[in-house]
Computed example of a mutant assay.
Amino acid sequence: MNVTRFAEAPAYFPPHHTGMHCLRLQGHEAGRSDALWMGVSVLLPGGHTALDASPLEKHYVVLEGEVRLRTPDETVTLHQYDSVRLAPGEAREVSNPCNRPALLLLAMPYP
Score class of each variant (00 low, 15 high):
residue 49 T to L: 05
residue 89 G to I: 11
residue 33 S to K: 11
residue 108 M to E: 09
residue 71 T to Y: 04
residue 8 E to H: 02
residue 68 R to W: 01
residue 12 Y to T: 01
residue 24 R to M: 12
residue 93 E to N: 08
residue 76 V to M: 08
residue 59 H to K: 07
residue 18 T to K: 12
residue 9 A to F: 03
residue 10 P to Q: 00
residue 5 R to A: 09
residue 53 A to N: 10
residue 6 F to M: 12
residue 68 R to S: 06
residue 10 P to A: 00
residue 103 L to C: 10
residue 108 M to V: 10
residue 16 H to Y: 10
residue 58 K to W: 05
residue 54 S to L: 15
residue 24 R to Q: 09
residue 6 F to E: 04
residue 69 L to D: 03
residue 95 S to H: 07
residue 43 L to C: 08
residue 17 H to R: 14
residue 6 F to Y: 12
residue 58 K to A: 14
residue 25 L to G: 01
residue 53 A to L: 14
residue 46 G to S: 09
residue 41 S to V: 06
residue 7 A to F: 00
residue 48 H to V: 02
residue 92 R to Q: 12
residue 30 A to R: 00
residue 23 L to V: 03
residue 9 A to C: 07
residue 43 L to K: 03
residue 6 F to I: 07
residue 87 A to Q: 15
residue 101 P to Q: 11
residue 17 H to K: 15
residue 105 L to M: 09
residue 93 E to H: 02
residue 57 E to Y: 15
residue 54 S to M: 11
residue 67 V to M: 05
residue 108 M to W: 02
residue 59 H to R: 07
residue 34 D to P: 06
residue 97 P to R: 06
residue 105 L to S: 04
residue 77 T to H: 05
residue 39 G to H: 01
residue 19 G to L: 07
residue 66 E to Q: 14
residue 93 E to C: 13
residue 85 R to I: 04
residue 98 C to Y: 11
residue 108 M to G: 04
residue 81 Y to W: 13
residue 15 P to V: 13
residue 99 N to R: 10
residue 100 R to V: 03
residue 27 G to Y: 00
residue 57 E to C: 09
residue 98 C to Q: 09
residue 15 P to E: 11
residue 39 G to F: 00
residue 7 A to M: 04
residue 100 R to A: 13
residue 73 D to V: 13
residue 54 S to Q: 15
residue 68 R to G: 03
residue 3 V to E: 05
residue 29 E to G: 05
residue 65 G to N: 05
residue 23 L to K: 08
residue 103 L to T: 05
residue 6 F to W: 12
residue 55 P to Y: 10
residue 73 D to A: 13
residue 29 E to T: 03
residue 19 G to V: 11
residue 61 V to I: 15
residue 16 H to D: 10
residue 31 G to K: 01
residue 38 M to I: 13
residue 22 C to M: 09
residue 23 L to D: 01
residue 106 L to H: 06
residue 70 R to A: 15
residue 56 L to D: 04
residue 82 D to H: 08
residue 79 H to P: 01
residue 110 Y to E: 02
residue 61 V to H: 11
residue 15 P to M: 10
residue 5 R to M: 07
residue 45 P to E: 07
residue 58 K to P: 03
residue 4 T to D: 03
residue 46 G to V: 07
residue 51 L to A: 12
residue 49 T to E: 04
residue 45 P to H: 11
residue 14 P to F: 10
